[in-house]
Simulated assay, not measured.
Amino acid sequence: MSISVTTWHLEQTSPADLAPAQAPPAGQGVRIVRAEVPSPEFSRFLYTAVGGDILWTDRLTWSYAQWAEFLGRPGVETWVAYERGTPAGFIELAAEADGSVEITYFGLIPAFQGRRIGGQLLSYGVERAWDLAVRWPGRTPTKRVWLHTCSKDGPHAMANYQRRGFRLYETTVADEPETPVPGPWPGAGPVTAGRPAGE
């Protein structure tokens, strides 16, 4: 079987386009830190923990070497939000030779959603996309920040991007094979009432 998937492409073309989100309360203990040492293990953990419930599957087949090669590219950055020392979500940036920076992945681990962390993380990540060339001498200054999201993504993703000042510039619709939701790691069963199935 196949399902119809709508993909929306959004962009900012000036740092002034960004409409920052209100930060979570100071007592919540949220901080955002760049993962400067490329770590396939950590990046794969973030990818599966955030995307397991919303059909992020394209990197599940990547080898360790593929992860290492991508993360080691000049201009690729991973910024991680922590709440009181626990990873809550991440935003991944990838600079392109023409001065564009793609937000390749962004999201929160489900347990941290609804706590005003996502807006702060997206705002901070977009700021880092605009000043990325400062940290990578020799790169073209950022001229455009872009991303795509689709109808398989979280229900609030599109609204969050638009609230942060992203503008829609292209919409596509395509049929894709229906795939099972992978969950946060291979073999993990569905969670029912806060407990793994079968317990």
Score class of each variant (00 low, 15 high):
residue 97 A to I: 07
residue 97 A to H: 13
residue 98 D to M: 08
residue 98 D to F: 10
residue 98 D to P: 10
residue 99 G to T: 06
residue 99 G to L: 08
residue 99 G to M: 06
residue 100 S to Y: 05
residue 100 S to C: 07
residue 100 S to G: 13
residue 100 S to Q: 09
residue 100 S to D: 09
residue 101 V to I: 11
residue 101 V to W: 12
residue 102 E to H: 05
residue 102 E to I: 03
residue 103 I to N: 02
residue 103 I to M: 14
residue 104 T to I: 14
residue 104 T to W: 08
residue 104 T to F: 09
residue 105 Y to P: 02
residue 105 Y to R: 05
residue 105 Y to N: 12
residue 105 Y to W: 05
residue 106 F to C: 10
residue 106 F to A: 06
residue 106 F to P: 06
residue 106 F to N: 04
residue 106 F to W: 10
residue 106 F to D: 03
residue 107 G to I: 11
residue 107 G to V: 08
residue 107 G to C: 12
residue 108 L to N: 08
residue 108 L to I: 11
residue 108 L to K: 10
residue 109 I to W: 11
residue 109 I to L: 13
residue 109 I to C: 14
residue 110 P to K: 15
residue 110 P to W: 12
residue 111 A to M: 12
residue 111 A to K: 12
residue 111 A to Y: 13
residue 112 F to P: 14
residue 112 F to Y: 15
residue 112 F to W: 09
residue 113 Q to H: 07
residue 113 Q to K: 14
residue 113 Q to W: 09
residue 113 Q to E: 15
residue 113 Q to T: 15
residue 113 Q to I: 07
residue 114 G to S: 10
residue 114 G to L: 04
residue 115 R to Q: 13
residue 115 R to Y: 08
residue 115 R to E: 11
residue 116 R to N: 15
residue 116 R to H: 15
residue 116 R to S: 14
residue 116 R to T: 09
residue 116 R to E: 15
residue 117 I to W: 05
residue 117 I to A: 06
residue 118 G to T: 12
residue 118 G to D: 08
residue 118 G to K: 07
residue 118 G to W: 08
residue 118 G to E: 10
residue 119 G to A: 15
residue 121 L to E: 11
residue 121 L to T: 07
residue 121 L to R: 08
residue 121 L to I: 13
residue 122 L to P: 02
residue 122 L to F: 11
residue 122 L to S: 05
residue 122 L to M: 10
residue 124 Y to G: 09
residue 125 G to F: 12
residue 126 V to I: 12
residue 126 V to D: 00
residue 127 E to C: 13
residue 128 R to H: 14
residue 128 R to S: 03
residue 128 R to Q: 12
residue 129 A to E: 03
residue 130 W to C: 01
residue 131 D to G: 01
residue 131 D to Y: 02
residue 132 L to D: 00
residue 132 L to Q: 00
residue 133 A to Y: 07
residue 134 V to S: 03
residue 135 R to C: 02
residue 135 R to S: 02
residue 136 W to M: 01
residue 136 W to T: 01
residue 137 P to E: 14
residue 138 G to M: 00
residue 138 G to C: 01
residue 138 G to D: 00
residue 139 R to A: 15
residue 139 R to G: 05
residue 140 T to M: 01
residue 140 T to A: 06
residue 141 P to W: 09
residue 141 P to S: 12
